[in-house]
Design a protein around this nucleic acid. Structure first.
Lengths: 118, 118
DNA sequence: TCTTATATTAGATATCATCTACTATTAGAC
DNA sequence: GTCTAATAGTAGATGATATCTAATATAAGA
């Protein structure tokens, strides 16, 4: 029961739309995305797993939603800057529809639970 | 892009709380749960994968959330009836809290997407 | 020089979703 | 009587996502 899904683990899948939302506004590299996510209400101030984040970025670039280039700079370590593509922007529009449906579905379920347990 | 998560696949994880909600009301066997789910707004009238359903039921029984017994009957095939346990009822109460947080998180994300794309 | 912050990668495992395919019994149509 | 549909469940593989530990490397500041 300790790691039962009802406690809130295993219920995410929102990293992709979150990244698209942030990168829609400005290109960023992985580490700054990590820091921005951890201090943002958009991910509910949760710790982010860096491995998962970098892996997701690569996967999204492979899928054509992002493009990246290496930023080689005297002041910092080389870092990879990610930017959203047109496909990525379309994807985010789909996400809005999908997440809205999902939210409504969740509402129905929460309502059913309430009726049953109260 | 065809099977991008933004189109709505890979975004569920709600089978467990849904099953607990239904079984809170009355014990049922797998096949009738399958039919009930497919005709219910609670799962948004989606097709359910039988394999996943039966596997989830077994896993939940193993975790102590459900108990089952074989119903041997002259009129039907033998079938396994699942009922919710006290642990299962507690679990459903946790689910309500978890899903409510998750819904609020979703609301924030949808709001952010809207601000960005509009 | 030592520590902290920055920046990224590797590997393993657990969880959840999706798909095809298969077995077996019962009920009803023809 | 046989064929088909509905009922009831199982097996195996694969793909997608989440979680965890750990490692590498550079830059900045005490």
């Amino acid at each position: 029961m300790d790691k039962c899904a009802c406690k809130g683990s295993f219920l995410d899948k929102l990293l992709q739309p979150t990244l698209l939302t942030i990168l829609y506004q400005k290109p960023l590299h992985g580490f700054s995305l990590l820091k921005e996510l951890e201090q943002s209400s958009i991910m509910d101030y949760h710790k982010i797993d860096p491995t998962g984040l970098y892996r997701t970025l690569k996967k999204m670039e492979h899928a054509g939603l992002l493009i990246s280039h290496l930023d080689i700079n005297d002041n910092t370590q080389p870092r990879r800057i990610y930017a959203i593509t047109e496909d990525g922007k379309d994807c985010l529009k789909h996400w809005k529809i999908t997440l809205t449906h999902y939210r409504n579905h969740l509402d129905t379920l929460i309502q059913s639970i309430t009726e049953v347990i109260d």
